[in-house]
């Protein structure tokens, strides 16, 4: 019964040192030396100051910007310090009401747009920080953004199409558009 205490204590201590200290420090050292941009959060720098991360979405609600996925984080959407989804079940009336309200908001912001609304634009992401939307969701918003900015829709269409990120290696994942990068490109058009 007690014969195993010494190996238990000492191997616990030594293996903790190896897997809990040496291992993360070694991975950090190699990562910081070889891939510092990625290891530090893929920051977007504008005028010398970080304005976000390409991997972490930001909240956009102004009609002149492309909007991202709805975010269920609290107290504010896209709260990087508190990730998470809505966890609303598929038949929960609160979910259906939320989707209805988002559909309404999109229609009010662009009354003339009769296209069907892509589902990712009215459903909350899993992380609440999804940096991307589907190409369909970006194309859907062109008419609103064009009106708000007084730009030719065709010009915006080109801007969006240039920024569609295809499936990785041609087949993995889904095609998508990074919302922060698209909006920064939009701002620099003027």
């Amino acid at each position: 019964m007690f014969k195993e205490i010494r190996p238990a204590l000492s191997s616990f201590a030594i293996l903790t040192l190896i897997t809990g200290i040496v291992y993360p420090l070694a991975v950090t050292g190699i990562s910081q030396a070889l891939m510092p941009d990625q290891a530090n959060g893929s920051l977007v720098v504008k005028d010398g100051k970080p304005t976000g991360s390409t991997l972490i979405g930001q909240n956009f609600s102004d009609p002149k910007y492309f909007w991202g996925r709805p975010s269920a984080t609290s107290p504010m959407p896209y709260n990087g310090a508190s990730s998470g989804g809505s966890n609303l079940g598929p038949t929960n009336p609160a979910l259906i009401d939320a989707v209805k309200a988002r559909v309404q908001a999109l229609k009010e912001a662009d009354p003339g747009n009769g296209r069907p609304i892509p589902v990712d634009l009215v459903t909350a992401s899993a992380s609440g920080l999804d940096p991307e939307i589907s190409p369909a969701a970006a194309l859907y918003q062109i008419s609103r953004v064009a009106k708000a900015r007084g730009i030719e829709p065709a010009k915006l269409q080109r801007l969006v199409e240039e920024r569609i990120l295809g499936r990785q290696f041609g087949f993995l994942g889904e095609p998508r558009v990074n919302v922060l990068e698209l909006n920064l490109a939009l701002d620099s058009m003027h």
Partner: peptide, 8 residues
């Protein structure tokens, strides 16, 4: 069903 799922 994209509720609670990520675009990528």
């Amino acid at each position: 069903n994209m509720e609670g799922k990520e675009t990528r």
